[in-house]
Design a binder for these strands. Structure first.
Lengths: 183, 183
DNA sequence: TCCAGGCGTCAACACGTGTTGGCCTACAGT
DNA sequence: ACTGTAGGCCAACACGTGTTGACGCCTGGA
């Protein structure tokens, strides 16, 4: 079959995202990705040069945290939880990152910097507790990532069947306390 | 050098635990483990038969949850958090399990069954809410595993520098609410 | 002293991996 | 119709992996 170059590239990228999300960096092989995309492994190299660069392209990511200044103070926790659930389900990028960060120092560093660059400022602004903003952000991250780990990666059945609203109701106050309780 | 068979076996097991904890199942190679133990890779096979069986031996695990019936009702959350911190730091087994469960369905299943077999009954007994015990246990697991993920695996600096007591103070009430709040 | 059996090493196999280079072929521009 | 080029495939390389079997050597018991 014959295609435009960019179509093939997109096809590869889609297959790569699925494989990386399902298997993590190591177990996702170029050959499997190529097979999913219906092309030859060498095409992957042609378009992306290297497995590492393919991963970088597949794992491009932005948390897209909303502006929280217009949210009522008491709803910050729930809003954050709801946003993360959305962000986690819109595409597979966070699963890719988490599955890989656990055994790959470079990707772990990437996760750390994503959270410190985007979540710490929120915690600082909301809590007014600039001294402990990093701790507060880390605590919030621990609950949010833990939920995602159990729900999307380990697939604990009881967490999988809970509705979005249930999760927001349970986790909202927790994140609220971490991020916004008075110093 | 010459040794008793059991000494060598123990040596291999210790090296394996370190490697599995540091690198996860896939990246920890038999050759590297053998090198750490100062012996030939084939000895590993002789003593454990298979990489998978070596892993099974290295990842043998018991949560060792304490009896909570003698703990004052309000302290259950803090007690659980403190126990998990201990359990997590006494040896590397939980890190091994977590690092591997993320990309290995069999080990993920093992974690699920560990938590459902040991944490669900606690949640049921403490909360009296038998209908939602599985959800409560899963929520508690999400916070506890999330903390461990961020502290021991992703190594978020701010979580790493927090003291045991700080963590108990922050997470205790959360786990308390998950596991013991009235239905 | 001898020797059987267990502790240990070496070298190799079979396989899967990322990666490379050469070749084919359909199509667009002349 | 001719041809250059871009999209695609094939075969192979180099390497690291788990795993195996043959071979030495030390040591404890007869």
């Amino acid at each position: 079959m014959r295609r435009r170059s960019e179509d093939t590239k997109a096809l590869i990228l889609a297959a790569a995202r699925e494989r990386f999300a399902a298997d993590g960096y190591d177990r996702a092989t170029i050959r499997a990705i190529a097979a999913d995309a219906g092309i030859d492994p060498s095409m992957v190299m042609r378009y992306f040069g290297t497995k590492e660069r393919l991963f970088a392209a597949a794992a491009e990511f932005d948390l897209e945290l909303p502006d929280l200044t217009s949210v009522p103070g008491d709803d910050v926790g729930a809003t954050l939880v709801a946003h993360f659930l959305d962000r986690w389900e819109r595409d597979e990028t966070l699963v890719i990152l988490l599955r890989t960060a656990v055994t790959n120092e470079a990707v772990a560093e990437r996760m750390r910097s994503i959270f410190s660059a985007q979540l710490v400022p929120v915690a600082a602004k909301i809590s007014g507790d600039h001294a402990a903003a990093r701790k507060r952000a880390a605590l919030a991250a621990s609950q949010i990532l833990g939920m995602a780990l159990c729900r999307y990666v380990l697939a604990l059945p009881s967490l999988g069947t809970m509705t979005r609203q249930e999760l927001v109701d349970w986790l909202g106050p927790v994140v609220q306390r971490y991020v916004a309780s008075p110093a």
